[in-house]
Design a protein around this nucleic acid. Sequence first.
RNA 1: GGAGGCGUUGCAGAGUGGACGAAUGCACCGGUCUUGAAAACCGGAGUGCCCUCACGGGCACCGGAGGUUCGAAUCCUCCCGCCUCCGCCA
Length: 425
Amino acid sequence: MIDLKLLRKNPEVVAESLRRRRSNLALDSLLLKDQTRRDLQKQGDDLRSNHKRRSEELARAMRMKANVDTLRSELRGLSAKISALEDEQRKADAEVEDEALLFPNLLLPDVPDGATGDDNPVVSAWGGKPPFSFAPKNHWDVGEALGILDFERAAKVARARFTCLKGGAARLERALISFMMDLHASRGYTEIWPPFLVNGASMRGTGQLPKFRADLFKCENEDLWLVPTAEVPVTNLHADEILTEDKLPVRYCAYTPCFRAEAGAAGKDTRGMIRQHQFDKVELVKFCRPEESAAELEQLRLDAEEVLRRLNLHYRVVSLCSGDLGFSAAKTYDIEVWLPGQAAYREISSCSTFTDFQARRAMIRYRAKSGETALVHTLNGSGLAVGRTLVAVLENYQQSDGSVVIPDALRPYMGGITQISLPPK
RNA sequence: GGAGGCGUUGCAGAGUGGACGAAUGCACCGGUCUUGAAAACCGGAGUGCCCUCACGGGCACCGGAGGUUCGAAUCCUCCCGCCUCCGCCA
C-alpha cells in the first residue's frame, strides 16, 4: 500500500510515479476520502473523550447514592450518537482502504522510463548463444519425441495448460529443484517449506488481492487460495511482526508449486510448458532495512543468475521500464534465458524490491537500535522458475539425434543419468 | 468429525462490571555503586490512528468480529487459533 501520509504531504510525488507508470488513476478522490476519514476520527475522538469523562462522573455519583437518572439518559443519548458516528467512521475507513489498496507502488528513481516491455533496456548479458549444426527444435517437440512430456494426457486429467512430466523429465524437474535449493542454502538463504495454500489476508499482504483475484485459484467454501508463488507464504511469514534489527537482513529460499489462472492470457504461449496453470519455482525472499534494499536487490539478481551460470545457459538481464513494472514492485530486473528452439529470450526470473509497499500491507516492521519501529523492505526473485529452466535445458542441450545431454551441475542429482535418450523403436 | 479446556502488555502470570493500558516477576534500556563486572537500589520502556512546526495532547487496542450496559479484559453470540481425549487417516 502506498503511504497515505506521504500522499497527503506530497501528492505530486505520487502523481509523478503514476504518470510514469502510464496509470490513469487519479488522486483527488482518495485525498478527499482521507480527509473525510480524518474529520470523522477527530469528531469521534472528541465525543468518546467527553463520554468517558461523564461516565466517570456517573460512577462517582452512584457511589454517593445520588440520583443519576438524568445523567444516565443523557449518556445513553451520547452513546447512541457515538455508535452512529462509529458506523460512519468504519465506512470511511473501508473506503479509504479499498481505494488505497488499488494504487501501485512508487517507482524507484532509477527505473527506466518506457511504456511497454519493448522499452526495457538490457543491462547485462552472460554467455553466448550455443551453436547448432542442425535446426534446434522447440522443447515440446524435443520432449514429446523423447516421450518425457505429455500434454495430451495432462489435459485429460486436468485441462489445457497442464503438463505431465515422465521419466527423464520428471527426474530432471526434481533434480533442478534440489540443485537450486542446495545452491541458495549454501549461499546464506534459510530453506523454507511453506504451506501451498494461504488465506486471503496473506494474499492481500503481498498485493495479489484485492486487485488480481482473477489470476488466482481458490478453494470452494474456504478462505484458502493456491499460492501463485512462494513469495506469498514466505513474505507473510513475518506479517504483524516486529523483527529485531540485528536479525536483518533475513534471507529465505523456498520451493513451491505455483498455481495461476492465467486470466487474460488466452492465446498466448498455448503450446509447450512456458505458460501453465501449475509450475514449480524456487523463490528467494528477503527482509531488510530500507538503506540496504538497493544493494540487496543487486545481490538477489546475482544469486538468481548464479543458477544459470552453473547450468551454462546463456541469458540477459533487463530492467523493467516504468510502464511494464508490476503493481507491487518499485524496481524489477527480469532475467531472460536464451531458448534456441524459439530463437527468443524468455523470462526465467523476476527480481524485485517492493520497498515498504508489502511491509505496510502486511505490517512487517523492525525495531531499530534507537528503539524506533519502522517498516522493513521486502524483496524477492525467482531462483529460478523450474519449469522454464527445464525448457531451457531441453532446448539448449538437445543433440542432433534427438537426445538431451544433462548439464554437469545436475548430474549429481540425476542418479547417474548423463543423457535422456530416445526410447528404442 | 465429536467432547472438554484455554487465548491478557517481549516472556511468565494476576485481574470476573467502573479508579485497569492493565499488578507482580523475569528479560530489556538508562542511572547510582564498582578498577571492571555481578548483586543491590533508583528511574524508563507497548502498538496504531488523529491533532500540533514543536512541546505536548486526544482516541483506540487484553485472539478477531458483533451484542448487552451510562460503562466490558471481565457478561452473551459467532469466528479463528492452541492444548487434551475419542474417531479417522499419510
